[in-house]
Design a protein around this nucleic acid. Structure first.
Length: 503
RNA sequence: GUCUCGUUAGCUCAGCUGGUAGAGCACGUCACUUUUAAUGAUGUGGCCGAUGGUUCGAAUCCAUCACGGGACACCA
């Protein structure tokens, strides 16, 4: 039963008393004229003044009570709004007769949202505070807040009841403010470059643009299944066919796979496509983009991440095959031979699925021996064609593609390539993926005939890139679980939440 | 999916090799007009995650399940 515990009953009783005394526990008459941050900034000169107070200034601030120190005839109350925390001095004799003892002390408590008017002063302990001459309740909180010192630390509570986490942990608010800024800056960066922001479908007839298992939903009126998109790629490229030359989309993708510290079933990415450019241009714009973010977020380019220090002034670039040897320590002769790779992996205690081709095996080597060693930002280039079904082949070597992935702090942050725009080649790549699917690879790419048809009208040479926004925010905020950069991460339902659906 | 740790008051946590539940904060009452997790006194507060089992007796031991954390696997 919600709202049934004894603390809540006690608080409901207080709300009733307040109402009977003429104080609306859910008042809607806020007179606030400044926020706490502004109050503290504007009045920072009080500390230097002779009087340590200025009774000619008057402000009305609002916020949630986080702490109360009640003494006989005066109290200190800490209130918090989105911008910060403020100490308010509440003395009996500055308030209407009887208010302090019968209303304030008895019926207003930690968690309530109040409004206070008064003048700025500095306490004996040197804290700039508000000297209250009026105090009113805006919103009664009938559910007590967690403990004032430890707060909520239980991750389950923090994720399931993010509102409590946000009330109790100011640094969590900070993380999400940074996330918001990253998205806003990303949008501005691409707009300033002349990119057009577009929205493409979230419900796809064919889940294309990546190798992943989709969520399925159903359209009742049409009687057909739809897939929640796993990537917007194929729609964005259709727009390039249509004549837009630079487009981007920042939005959610959905993948029906496991959840862990770096995977949530829905996640946010930006994908952008740029006609008449190649993956080389993408490397340059990516460096510029990171510079832009660091500038505007005022972050040091030597950025701590866990035990690591990531140097954002040290972008590296290395072909995948070369990285296997120089970074992964895999002997050169191993990297070009299927059997030798399998033997090498087995020797290191890694088993691979049977039937893998050379490109896939090289990918396995990379995942096992290179990825986690890429701390400073590194563009890994020249991916094998077998694991790059949508990327353009190199003109000089048909086995590799004009592609890179960007790795930072041992993790993939971006995936980019010169787009495949040869419809015949695209068709045969899709057919190759179909074969892989038939032989058991249920994450192989789906055939999308309409996309091939779109390409058949001619898509200008184009470069395209996807950047995982969640992982980028993790990196920039030094968070190590994707759940800490998602306001409402996916959670299993609790027993009590289960809705009887089936049968 | 596998392994592992956890789940005790509103919150943060104790609770030994089984004997029927404890602290701090919060809350109630009293005192206190410059406190800083205010202080002092006093009191209330528990289906010990769920279900079964072992036992005279289970928060404690065992099994199963649920949820969560971490690691691995899968996957971007």
């Amino acid at each position: 039963m919600p709202l049934s515990n004894k603390y809540i009953q006690q608080r409901i009783e207080k709300a009733k008393i307040l109402k009977e005394a003429g104080f609306n526990p859910y008042a809607n008459n806020s007179q606030r004229n400044t926020n706490i941050e502004k109050f503290l900034n504007v009045n920072s000169d009080i500390a230097e003044s002779e009087e340590k107070r200025d009774e000619n200034r008057h402000y009305i601030v609002s916020g949630r009570i986080k702490l109360m120190r009640i003494m006989g005839k005066a109290s200190f109350v800490k209130i918090e709004d989105e911008s910060g925390m403020l100490q308010v001095y509440v003395a009996r004799d500055n308030l209407p007769e009887g208010f302090y003892n019968t209303i304030f002390k008895k019926n207003i408590e930690v968690g309530d949202i109040i409004e206070v008017g008064g003048y700025p002063f500095v306490t004996g302990q040197g804290e700039l505070s508000l000297h209250a001459d009026s105090l009113s309740l805006l919103t009664k909180s009938i559910n007590p807040l967690p403990e004032k010192f430890h707060g909520v630390t239980d991750k389950e509570i923090r994720y399931r009841k993010r509102y409590l986490d946000l009330i109790m942990n100011a640094e969590v608010r900070k993380t999400f403010q940074i996330r918001s800024r990253v998205i806003s800056l990303t949008r501005r960066f691409f707009e300033d470059k002349g990119f057009l922001e577009v929205e493409t479908p979230m419900m796809h007839p064919i889940a294309g643009g990546a190798n992943a298992k989709p969520f399925v939903t159903h359209h009742n009126a049409l009687g057909i299944d739809r897939y929640l998109r796993i990537a917007p790629e194929l729609y964005l490229k259709r727009l390039i066919v249509g004549g837009f030359e630079a487009v981007f989309e920042i939005n959610r993708n959905f993948r029906n796979e496991g959840m862990d510290a770096t995977h949530n079933p829905e996640f946010t990415s930006i994908e952008f496509y740029w006609a008449y450019k190649t993956y080389k241009d993408l490397i340059e714009i990516t460096k510029e983009y990171f510079g832009y973010l660091f500038d505007h977020l005022d972050l040091p380019t030597l950025l701590p991440y866990g035990d690591m220090k990531v140097n954002f002034d040290n972008f590296q670039e290395i072909p995948l095959i070369e990285s296997l040897t120089t970074i992964g320590g895999v002997p050169v002769e191993v990297t070009q031979d299927k059997e030798k790779i399998i033997t090498y992996l087995n020797d290191k205690g890694i088993t691979v699925k049977p039937g893998m081709n050379l490109g896939q095996l090289q990918g396995e080597l990379f995942d096992a021996f290179v990825e986690e060693k890429l701390i400073d930002p590194t563009f890994i280039t020249e991916y094998p064609v077998e694991i790059s079904p949508l990327a353009r082949r190199s003109d000089t070597n048909p086995d590799i593609t004009e592609r890179f992935e960007l790795f930072i702090a041992g993790r993939e942050i971006a995936n980019a390539f010169s787009e495949l725009n040869d419809p015949i080649d695209q068709l045969s790549r899709f057919e190759g993926q179909m074969k892989a699917k038939d032989s058991g690879d249920d994450e192989a790419h789906e055939m999308d005939k309409d996309f091939v048809e779109a390409l058949s009208y001619g898509m200008a040479p184009t470069a395209g890139q996807g950047i995982g926004i969640d992982r980028l925010v993790m990196l920039l905020t030094n968070e190590h679980s994707i759940r800490d950069v998602l306001l409402f991460p996916a959670m299993k339902p609790l027993n009590s939440e289960e809705t009887p659906e089936e049968e």
